[in-house]
Amino acid sequence: MKTMYVCNDTITGIFSAVYDAWKTKKSEDECGIAIQGMLERELFCEYCRTEESEKKAQAVENLIKKHLGRRVYWDLYHAALSEDREKGDAILGTMLAARRIPDSRRIMEHLSHPKVEKVFKLSRNVGGEAHSYKGFLRFRELVNGVLYSEITPRNQVLTCLAPHFADRLPLENWMIYDKTHRMFAVHEAGKKWILVLNEEPEQSFAAQISERELEYARLWKSFCRTIAIESRTNPRCQLGHLPLRYRGDMLEMSDVL
């Protein structure tokens, strides 16, 4: 009978489930991973709740980095951030498949394996969304000088964005709120960034923008309007590059001001 390890939808959760499944030394057909909250029960399956711990997750991270290399870790990590229901299964399947090939580090070249292909797709999708948000995310300055941003991503991209902005704006206090997954990335000037889970911003907090903010928002909106060449106007091309789902959180696409 197949054993499904059920875990939370976090990196720690998924890696802990991989840890449990890995220890039983079962084959691919005999074990799998399901995410709590996205569970679809199957027949002839035994469901087993994974107890998650930092220690297990760390062990799996080390295992991947040591035997599969950093680039494969990058793919597996990004796949784990995906919104996809079967991501845990794909990650476990890829790791098990890597055991059977002569050079495990080249596992991501074996795209004919369905689990590997899945990880490849998920990783590309998450990486793509994270890259888009590096550009499309907008900060606004609050009265206390904090730069504040809200995004609505499909995948959990905050941990991909935070290092980028920490490097870019090291001397600023900033926070990014992920509305979909209800979590924050918070950065205090000159310090390391942290992730805060299951929190919501206070209504009044985000609305109090600084005095100068309106002025720059107005300048930016007018810049975006002016830079377009009229005789080349082409909303469909714009739509292809900048899908509607990003626009809700973008200043220049909103009607206010």
């Binding site: 890259h131 550009g135 909303p235 091309c237 292809g240």
Partner: peptide, 21 residues
Amino acid sequence: GTGMGSCEQSGICHSFSADGR
């Protein structure tokens, strides 16, 4: 770490204007 800014090899698009550029 002393100022502001960084660069990515691939470049980053921040928005798209009405002409699709």
